[in-house]
C-alpha cells in the first residue's frame, strides 16, 4: 500500500516532465537531450526563490513559466530551426538534434555549476505529515502530485478543446498536411518546444520540493522522461501519463523491496521489455 501511494505520487511529477519532453518531440520533432537540464534549472529556480525570499515553489513554478517558455522558444528558433531547415529527412533531423541538444546539455550543466556550485541542494517545504489510511506521508509529495495532475488535465483539455491545441496536434500527426492547410509549422513547433520546456521546468520545481538535486543530475531525468515517452507512445499525452505512473510505481517498488540503487536499472528493464514486446508504446499505434 505504501509503495502504491508513494509510487503514484512520484508518477504525477514524472508525468509532468515527460509531457514536456513529449510536446518537444511529438510536435517539434526534436529529441531534446537537454530536457533534464531545463528540469534542473527549474529546480534551482524554485530552490533559489524559496531559500532567498521564502516564495512558495507552487508560486515560483508558475511565475517562471513565461521565462522558461521564452528561453526554450529561443532555443528552438535560433538553435534547432536551422537544423530543421537543412535536414533532408526525419532521421537526419533526429541525429542532428540529438547531437546538438546533447552538446547543449553540457553547456547548461557548466553554466549551472558556475552559478550554483557542485553541491547537492534541497530545502524543506511542507515537510509535515498527512495521513492516508492511517499511514503518514509527506505533504509536499501530495501537493506536488495534485499540482502536476492539475497541469496535465489542463494541458489535455487545452490540446483537445482549443484551436491552438488542435493546431499542435495537427503538426504532431502530419507536418506536411499542416503546411497544406496553412499552418506555420515552424511557428507551431517553436510554440510547442517553448511550452514543453516551461512544463518540464515546472516539473523540476515540483520535484525539488521532495527530491535532492545537483547541477549535473539532469541527464538522469532526461533518461527517465525518454523512457516514459517511448513507453507511452509519442502521439498522445495520455500514454505518457500512464507510463509515468508505471515508472513511478516500478521505481518505488524496487527501491523499497530490493535496493534503492537499482531504481534506474529497474526503469530500464521495463523500458527494454516495452521495446521488445510493444515497440510502438503501450498506447501507440503500429505504423502503417
Amino acid at each position: 500500500m505504501d509503495i502504491l501511494i508513494i509510487g503514484v505520487l512520484l508518477g504525477g511529477a514524472y508525468a509532468l516532465m515527460a509531457v514536456g519532453l513529449q510536446l518537444q518531440y511529438g510536435v517539434a520533432r526534436i529529441m531534446n537531450l537537454a530536457n533534464g537540464e531545463i528540469l534542473v534549472a527549474g529546480a534551482f529556480g524554485a530552490f533559489w526563490f524559496f531559500t532567498g525570499s521564502q516564495v512558495s515553489p507552487l508560486i515560483t513554478v508558475i511565475g517562471y513559466a513565461p521565462v522558461a517558455f521564452a528561453a526554450n522558444w529561443a532555443i528552438y528558433r535560433y538553435l534547432m530551426l536551422p537544423l530543421v531547415r537543412r535536414s533532408k529527412s526525419e532521421g537526419h533531423l533526429e541525429v542532428d538534434s540529438i547531437l546538438a541538444t546533447f552538446g547543449l546539455s553540457f553547456i547548461l550543466v557548466g553554466v549551472m555549476l558556475a552559478l550554483f556550485g557542485g553541491e547537492f541542494f534541497s530545502y524543506s517545504f511542507l515537510e509535515k505529515p498527512f495521513d492516508i489510511m492511517g499511514q503518514p506521508y509527506e505533504q509536499n509529495r501530495l501537493v506536488a502530485f495534485l499540482y502536476a495532475a492539475a497541469f496535465c488535465v489542463g494541458l489535455y483539455v487545452w490540446l483537445h478543446r482549443t484551436r491552438m491545441g488542435l493546431t499542435l496536434r495537427a503538426v504532431s500527426v502530419s507536418p506536411e498536411a499542416s503546411r497544406r492547410v496553412g499552418i506555420d509549422v515552424a511557428g507551431a513547433s517553436a510554440l510547442a518546444f517553448g511550452l514543453g520546456g516551461a512544463i518540464t521546468a515546472a516539473g523540476g520545481g515540483l520535484l525539488s520540493t521532495f527530491l535532492v538535486f545537483d547541477a549535473s543530475i539532469g541527464i538522469i531525468f532526461t533518461m527517465k522522461a525518454l523512457v516514459i515517452v517511448i513507453m507511452g507512445g509519442l502521439r498522445d499525452i495520455r500514454g505518457s501519463i500512464v507510463a509515468a505512473f508505471v515508472l513511478g510505481l516500478t521505481e518505488t517498488a524496487v527501491a523499497s523491496l530490493i535496493d534503492p540503487g537499482l531504481t534506474l536499472a529497474a526503469a530500464y528493464v521495463v523500458f527494454i521489455l516495452v521495446l521488445l514486446f510493444r515497440p510502438q508504446g503501450i498506447f501507440g499505434r503500429r505504423a502503417t
Binding site: 495537427a170 500527426v173 498536411a177 492547410v181 499552418i183
Partner: peptide, 26 residues
C-alpha cells in the same frame, strides 16, 4: 490556393470534424 494532394494527405489520427476545422485554419 488549396491543394488536395494525391493520396489525400489527411490528418489520419484526427477525427473528421477536426480535419475539417483545420481546413478553416487560414
Amino acid at each position: 490556393i488549396a491543394l488536395v494532394p494525391e493520396g489525400r494527405g489527411l490528418f489520419d489520427d484526427l477525427t473528421v470534424i477536426e480535419n475539417l476545422t483545420l481546413g478553416a485554419y487560414p
